[in-house]
Amino acid sequence: MNTSAVEAEKDTVSADGETDVRRRARIRLELAASYLQRGQTSVALEETRQALTTDPRFTDAYHLRGLIYMQMGDLNLAEENLQKAQGMRPNDPDIMHNMGWLQCQKQQYAQADELFDRALSIPTYMDRNKTLMSKGVCLVRSGKPDEAEPVLQKAYEFDAANPILGYELAQLKFQKGDAKHAQFYIRRVNNGNFATADSLWLGIKVERALGDQPAVRQLAGQLHKRFPDSRQALAYERGAFNE
């Protein structure tokens, strides 16, 4: 290789060690992530394709493409891309987490639980609470509420403002006949900015079980105002509280 070629090669590497190829691929991936946040999955997918055309060894591009396919509901292509990313970076807890959540979507609950535990076993993992929540939700789906409850409770201790955790714990408590504790959790959800038709409906059933009719009427008013055509609003009209 002549001197000018060596110099040209050096010019493709930035001060932080990133090659020009990787930099161009990373810019594409940042665009893909932005489009995904806005719900433009097709455009996001095209940007990941461009990133991988530029740099076929870009692990993060396979990872993000897996998440895009998961959001699009194509679990097989999601798994294919997440497996590719995991093969390239096998000890990445974020990839383990997302692969675990994918397995949960596919009702492969044992595999999901194993992947969540592997992610949680990595001391440097920063998003442990996210994985605890997903592990707990997946245990509920797999029909193991008694195992799920302490996991969700542990996650709630660190993230009490999380409406998903509040809802899941309220539902677990209510199903076990503990309406009083269910009320504590679901009221925090419904008094915040993230109430849903599901959370309002659960709140109605909890307050009804405790005999608080004013609270029932107040929640029913919210349900009809915010989600008038929802399945939950129609169930309330029918008095179908045990569906």
Rank of each mutant, 00 (worst) to 15 (best):
F174T: 01
R38C: 00
L200W: 02
S199M: 03
G73K: 06
G39Q: 06
G136Y: 01
L45S: 09
D55R: 00
R89K: 11
D20L: 15
W101K: 14
Q108N: 15
E114C: 08
D55F: 00
P56Q: 01
A161H: 12
A25V: 04
T59R: 05
F241T: 05
D11L: 15
T131R: 00
A182K: 02
F184E: 13
A61Q: 00
V21W: 07
A220K: 05
R24E: 14
V206D: 00
T48K: 09
T53S: 09
L36F: 14
L152G: 01
G239H: 11
L165D: 04
Q40Y: 12
Q232G: 05
N81D: 15
A78W: 00
S14G: 13
Q232S: 05
E30D: 14
G100C: 08
I68H: 00
A220D: 07
T131Y: 04
M126I: 11
L223V: 08
T124G: 08
N191Y: 12
D178M: 07
L64E: 02
H224D: 07
D60V: 00
M88R: 08
T48R: 02
F174S: 08
G221W: 04
D127Y: 12
E149T: 09
D159G: 07
G143K: 10
S34I: 03
K180Q: 14
N2R: 12
I186M: 06
D94G: 09
Y35A: 09
I122Q: 15
L219R: 07
Y167W: 07
R23S: 15
A195R: 03
E7T: 10
M126Q: 15
I204Q: 03
D146T: 10
L64K: 00
D198G: 06
A61K: 00
K135M: 13
R208W: 04
Y156F: 14
T48P: 08
N91F: 12
L31G: 08
G39L: 09
L115M: 15
A51I: 03
G203L: 06
L169V: 05
L64T: 03
R28H: 12
L219Q: 11
L139P: 00
A155K: 01
Q86D: 07
I204R: 03
Q153S: 15
S4G: 04
R65Y: 01
A160R: 15
P163N: 07
D127R: 12
D16L: 10
L31W: 13
G221P: 04
A155I: 02
I122R: 08
D16I: 02
K225M: 07
E157C: 02
S121H: 09
A51T: 02
L75M: 13
Q218E: 14
R38G: 06
T48G: 06
V189T: 00
Q111R: 15
Q50Y: 10
E47Q: 15
P145A: 04
A179R: 02
D117M: 13
R238Y: 08
T54F: 04
I186A: 02
M99W: 13
Q183G: 08
H63C: 04
I95C: 05
E147Q: 13
L219I: 05
P163I: 03
F184T: 11
S42K: 12
M88K: 11
T12Y: 11
Q103W: 13
V140W: 09
A155R: 02
P150Y: 06
R89D: 14
L172M: 09
Y109S: 15
E207F: 11
I68G: 00
Q107W: 13
A119D: 12
Y236T: 03
R49A: 07
R89V: 05
